[in-house]
Every structure is written in structure tokens, then in C-alpha cells.
Design a protein around this nucleic acid. Structure first.
Lengths: 137, 137
DNA sequence: CTTGACCCTAAGGTCTACTTTAAGGTTTAC
DNA sequence: GTAAACCTTAAAGTAGACCTTAGGGTCAAG
């Protein structure tokens, strides 16, 4: 149990495509522990956890570049977690800004959608008219 | 007053780069009313309003492809505004989903940031540990 | 009449995270 | 022994909205 696995098995275990694993390897996120005589990649089964880590971090909004940093911090257990926390806090701020931006867009659209009767010639469409005129702050 | 203008003047008036105007033209969003003997683009000054329309719509979250639709509806005053409203409503839904997604990411990060002391070896970092293990729903 | 600002086209580059394609080697099952 | 399934590499394609580059024409000022 716990034997080495090939790229196909790792892909299945981690739920990603094999090309994705090669892509992660090109970015330096993962790497096979060795190669077979035929140059096939051979992975430690634990690599699946690393791929999970990557997908988890992605789902939290981290880019692969940022994840690369997280992984290197993770592999140096004596590094300080301040940097990790900083990344998380910065990411929260980024997300807040994106949310704020989306909410401004939404508000603008809601105002327009509300005053638009929804039928009649576009010549009288308040949405199109609003777009053709004043500026926003 | 109200003389024709060249691409440079239009770019300045509308606050975009000249290449952007050529790009919009390739997408069919705008077009010069004519060309000079030297093949220079000649615009109706009102085209600046059209560019404003495009930027406004962009700021509300519409893609250039969607804006193309909006512009064609705008240019057919007898078309029904139902389609315009539909685009707006759909866009609001899109935005809601994006906001929800971002808020899920934010919540996840906040939980982790809160339990992370912010200093000490990364071996004990709750953020990295959380990333290396359980799965999310 | 030349310099510099402005214009033209076509095509390639940017960014992110992959996916697809092309053109093969290798291993396994029958 | 051969065909399917799996592996290899490098390179190109995808989406979206541009920006940059290459290689010229053109126009107004001095």
C-alpha cells in the first residue's frame, strides 16, 4: 500500500486532468519523485494532497503564483507564518474591493432595470437613454 | 462647430487610446463616417457619445459582445426594449453569482485568518494546515 | 524640404489557467 | 503480435480587451 503512482493515477486521485499536472509541474508547483526508464513520471501518492492544497487555495481565490509562495512556505516549516497570514489578509482586501465593484455595478443596473417598463420601442428605453448621456462618478 | 474629427481627436474627446477605437471598429461597435483621400478615418463628433455609451455599459459589467447587441438595439428605435431589460436582468443575476462566490471565498479566508496567530513557524500555521487536508463542500 | 506629429495595416504580445494538437514512444491485454 | 490505452515533448489555441511592434504613408510648421 502506498506504492508510487503514474500521472494518470495521480490525475484521477486528485480529480484533475493529466495535462493540468504537467502544467503545474512547469510552474514548479509539483514534481514527480522520479522517472521510469521510459521517462514516465513517477509520483509519491502524497502528491495528491499537494494537488488538493492547490485546488483548495484556488477556491479561496489565490492565483497559482501565490500558491507557489504558499507551497514554498509550507515546505519550509521553520518559516514564519506571518507571511502566510499577510497573503490571506491581502487577499481578503482584494476580494472586498471586487465585491464593492460588483455591488456598484449591480446598484446601477438595478436602478435602470427598475425604471424600465420592459416593453415598448427602444427609443424610449430608459436603460439605453441612461447609457447615452450623463457620466458616472 | 461640430466639424468632423480624426481618430486622435476622438480618442482624446472620449478618453480612450486610438488603438482602442480601431479595436472597437474591428468588433463593429463604431465606424468612421468616411475616410480622407489618405485613408484617414473621419468621425462624426457624436461618435464620442457612442464611445461613452460603450464605456458606461462596460462599467456596468457588460462585455463588448453584449454592448454590440445593446448598440444595435439602440440604433433600431422601433425594437422592443424587452430585450434590453432582459440583458440587464441577466447581468444582475450574473453579478449576484459572482458576489456570492467572492463572499464564500472571503468567509473561508476570514475563518483562517482569524485562527492564525500571525507568527511562529509555518509548521503550525492553521492556514496551511487547513489547506492540506479536509475538503470543502 | 525636412522634421516631427499623426495616420495606416497586419500581426504578434499580454495575462491566467488551462486545453488541444501534433507526432511520436511504451506498456498491457488479448 | 497487435491494437488499445497510456505516456512523452513542444507548441499552439482559448477567452477578453486591449497594447505593442513593424514598416510604412501624410500633413503642418519652420
Amino acid at each position: 500500500m502506498d506504492a508510487n503512482i503514474g500521472i494518470g493515477a495521480l490525475a484521477q486521485k486528485a480529480g484533475v486532468a493529466t495535462e493540468t499536472l504537467r502544467y503545474y509541474e512547469r510552474l514548479g508547483l509539483i514534481s514527480p519523485k522520479q522517472r521510469t526508464a521510459a521517462n514516465y513520471r513517477v509520483y509519491d501518492p502524497a502528491t495528491a494532497q499537494k494537488v488538493d492544497f492547490i485546488r483548495q487555495a484556488q477556491s479561496l481565490g489565490f492565483s497559482l503564483t501565490e500558491i507557489s509562495t504558499l507551497l514554498s512556505l509550507h515546505s519550509r516549516p521553520t518559516a514564519d507564518m506571518a507571511e502566510v497570514k499577510q497573503l490571506a489578509v491581502t487577499k481578503i482586501t482584494d476580494i472586498d474591493q471586487k465585491i464593492a465593484h460588483l455591488q456598484r455595478m449591480k446598484s446601477g443596473l438595478e436602478v435602470l432595470a427598475k425604471i424600465c417598463p420592459g416593453h415598448g420601442p427602444t427609443a424610449e428605453c430608459p436603460i439605453l437613454n441612461a447609457l447615452t448621456g450623463e457620466d458616472e462618478s
